[in-house]
Amino acid sequence: MTEELYLKDSYIREFDAKVKEIKSDYAILDKTAFYPGGGGLENDIGYFINSKGEKINVTEVKRDENNEILHKVESNSSLNVGDIIKGVIDWPRRYKMMRLHTASHIIAAIAYNKFGSLITGGHINPEYAKDDFNVDNKDTLIDIINEANEIVKKAIEVKVYFLPREEALMIPAIVKLAGRNPPNIPIWRIVEIPGIDIQADGGPHVRNTSEIGEIVLLKVENKGKGRKRVYYTVKP
């Protein structure tokens, strides 16, 4: 399987890798820093530079049915099995989503710890995030965003580490998405904001809450009885 570099270091912007396989317009590498999307977080985009110095745009990254990571490239790209390429992430896009992703963990933690509320759905793109919570009151979400901003200012280090599944399952609320089953894999990646939140998570995050900046509430929508959707972003 492709080595997933972002699992240990979300700040890798460029990397060298070997092309293992070509499937139609998709390339499979021996290692990658491109996040394939998942958990509501959009995939990375960027480009490759081949041995001839040619730039090859990567327009989509996803997993296939075998959990391999596929990088979609232009159909006329000069790319062959065995080639050594340099992969380059669209960093401004990725970093904005990292900031929003860590912000979403803080918001989810406050919702759970203070109101017993779980996320019932969500999505993060480079422009904004949206999360659905099983809460009745719009003001509850406004208060949560305000409290999240106070936590951001505390400049708390975000820790990433790995635990055996049995040990991770002993942590209360390790999965905070309603209806989501715990990952059926032997080793879990844990993202912890000490004193605030701890979750099983496979996506890129910032190293410190201070990098999030200010969380800006965009709007709250009523999505039915006991369900509200909150839209938010982070200041540039």
Rank of each mutant, 00 (worst) to 15 (best):
V61E: 02
K62V: 12
R63L: 11
N66K: 15
N67D: 15
N67G: 01
E68G: 00
L70Y: 12
K72H: 03
N76R: 06
S77D: 05
S77V: 13
S77G: 05
S77N: 11
V81K: 14
V81M: 01
I85T: 06
G87L: 06
V88C: 11
I89P: 07
D90M: 08
M98E: 13
R99V: 04
H101D: 06
A103D: 08
S104H: 01
H105M: 07
I106K: 05
A109E: 10
K114C: 03
K114A: 08
L118D: 01
T120E: 13
T120Q: 10
G121H: 08
H123N: 13
E127V: 11
Y128I: 03
K130G: 00
F133Q: 05
N134H: 07
N137W: 12
D139T: 13
T140K: 12
T140H: 13
E150P: 09
E150L: 14
I156H: 03
V158Q: 09
V158W: 04
K159H: 04
V160D: 02
F162I: 09
L163Q: 08
L169V: 00
I171T: 11
P172I: 13
A173E: 14
A173K: 15
I174C: 05
G179P: 12
G179F: 08
R180S: 12
N181D: 15
N181F: 08
W188E: 07
V191Q: 00
I193G: 02
P194G: 03
